[in-house]
Design a protein around this nucleic acid. Sequence first.
DNA 1: TATATTTGAAGAATTTTATTCTGTTTTAGA
DNA 2: TCTAAAACAGAATAAAATTCTTCAAATATA
Lengths: 150, 150
Amino acid sequence: MEQIDDIDLQLLNILHDNSKYTVKELAKMVNLSASPVFERIKRLENSGYIKKYIALLDAEKLNRGFIVFCNIKLKQHDRNIGNQFVSDIMKIEEVVECYNISGDYDFLMKVSAKDMKHYQDFVFNKLGSVESIGSTQSTFVMSEIKNMYG
Amino acid sequence: MEQIDDIDLQLLNILHDNSKYTVKELAKMVNLSASPVFERIKRLENSGYIKKYIALLDAEKLNRGFIVFCNIKLKQHDRNIGNQFVSDIMKIEEVVECYNISGDYDFLMKVSAKDMKHYQDFVFNKLGSVESIGSTQSTFVMSEIKNMYG
DNA sequence: TATATTTGAAGAATTTTATTCTGTTTTAGA
DNA sequence: TCTAAAACAGAATAAAATTCTTCAAATATA
């Protein structure tokens, strides 16, 4: 596919951290004029290197600062159960991320709640009604050390 | 602090998914004109509800599509060892996220590599030279099911 | 209840930025 | 070295952000 060079990489790294720079500002950072920078960014968008632009929100202010990693074991390991689990989990807003993983558990979910009470309610009422789940194990986040996205 | 209403919440949800809408487009979505929408967004930025705007990149294209959750136990649990670990981990580019957690392990890291070979090299050469680490346990991501950021 | 006062909105005016266009330079290949 | 394609700079244009003014509604106050 498309080849990217060092300047493209610089632009990607800058935009990954802050997408609100103007092309003029970006141009100065990479020692080019505005128009080639504009063209490069469009190329990076069209070729898929840049997937999209989003706003990062303050989870604490939005009552979603209590983070838990929740491991899931399915009841059985057939395709139907798996598909059912995926489709159920997609609808639960507290589940922010979900991965199919190696090891003792089948899935690892990152869950975002207001507090322990909210998480407890999530486990009992939301996960509790997902039939495909065999067992769960919760790992609580005490503090966030590093997040290249947040 | 500042109180937000339902329209603010709508704007936050929209921008969290796509920050490239124009204020005119956003105005139509929430049934307002451009200027109040503009003011609301500025207010949400200044009050910290919106932390920043970023570009999401394609990890696969950038040779970072191999994701591993890496659990870490420290050698000892004193403040110096902990601080040393944090400061070391901050410098390692493959570590995309890191959390201080409850349970058998002390930290959970999300690691982003090109492939298994790269990850192996990361464990041996990068983690291998972090003195504070006692032991590690790797959980490999087989597939990403849900990601509210990606 | 009537009257200020504040708040939020609309729409126009202005400024800034994105985007396009044109001409030139560099680069790669024959 | 010559030619063609790609990449750049700078100007011109279009679109968006931002500001400003006015108005209406909501809220508070007498």
